[in-house]
């Protein structure tokens, strides 16, 4: 009664079908080696699991090191200390901060899409604009936003407006450049086809150039969405009454480093989620624009 069960367990643990073992009797060590190899292979086939294991390992190493070497919390707080701070301020308060940052990041991101894509289209259509606007864009991009943020805040006053503008300033440059590149990267044959049909110019833009720019635009959107989170945080560092960046700043100003790290963790989670959301939108709306299967 018991022995077949043991048999079954051991064979499934080795990851080898019984048939294979019968037909190719192997040296005694191989089942273990195979078992490890199979486990690794299985872990490799489940990227989620592999990531989780790596993450868990890192966190465990971090916790043990901090405890073992008694690292003071102002240098590096232990993961357990960081997680412990989450309960301190209550979930509604967390939600307020996350929503505030998310609102600014998404509105700034949205505004930068609304500006960048028409601007790129305009630059594509009007050569002179392209030549005059590009240097201007580079100047705007290379201006440290942190330096001009106080001016923006004084000019635009309280509320979300200055933070949204700061976020937009940080996010829109890669979008303009990528969209302009994408619009110009259309197969020339299709442009000739369009010309030979004597189609109206706007349709060349809407039916050929813009759709062909979609993969470029989405590459830039993936960069911009993470920049949007950074932008919102930078803006909150300059002026805010709520938000994860503000939370981090308040926490650091009080030397509550574990609490500040908790905020960083939330920011990282937000960035990851938004990045995945952009990928999801691309997969749902433009599946053809994804890289071909590897």
């Amino acid at each position: 009664m018991t022995s077949p069960r043991i048999c079954a367990t051991s064979s499934s643990a080795s990851g080898q079908p019984d048939m294979a073992q019968e037909s190719w009797p192997a040296p005694a060590v191989t089942p273990y080696r195979d078992a490890i190899a199979a486990a690794l292979r299985r872990a490799g086939q489940m990227p989620g699991l592999a990531t989780l294991l790596t993450l868990a390992g890192t966190v465990a190493f971090w916790e043990i090191s901090v405890r073992l070497f008694a690292v003071p919390s102002y240098l590096l707080p232990a993961p357990s200390a960081i997680l412990g701070t989450f309960g301190v301020i209550g979930w509604d308060r967390w939600a307020t901060h996350v929503i505030a940052t998310l609102r600014v990041a998404l509105m700034g991101f949205g505004l930068s899409i609304l500006i960048a894509i028409p601007l790129a289209v305009l630059m594509m259509r009007v050569q002179i604009l392209s030549r005059t606007l590009y240097p201007l864009l580079v100047v705007i991009q290379s201006t440290p936003v942190v330096a001009i943020a106080p001016i923006i805040i004084v000019v635009l006053g309280a509320g979300d407006a200055p933070r949204i503008v700061i976020t937009t300033l940080i996010t829109f440059f890669p979008l303009v450049v990528a969209t302009a590149t994408g619009l110009a990267a259309t197969p020339p044959e299709l442009i000739e086809l369009s010309r030979s049909l004597r189609a109206p110019g706007f349709r060349e833009m809407t039916q050929i150039r813009l759709p062909f720019a979609v993969p470029y635009i989405f590459s830039a959107l993936k960069i911009s969405i993470t920049l949007a989170v950074i932008g919102a945080v930078v803006a909150e560092f300059c002026a805010a009454e709520a938000g994860v960046g503000y939370f981090i700043q308040v926490s650091t100003s009080l030397f509550k480093l574990p609490q500040a790290w908790g905020g960083l963790l939330v920011l990282a989670a937000m960035s990851l989620a938004l990045f995945q959301a952009v990928i999801l939108v691309q997969r749902l709306l433009f599946p053809w624009s994804l890289p071909k299967s590897r």
Partner: peptide, 30 residues
Amino acid sequence: PREDIGIVFQKPTLLPWATVEENVTFPRRH
């Protein structure tokens, strides 16, 4: 440009987001 002329290119240069039928009717839609 003359409209009574059809062009076939070296590369098919189809629209990757459009179905085969939509690609064939594309000149009209365009």
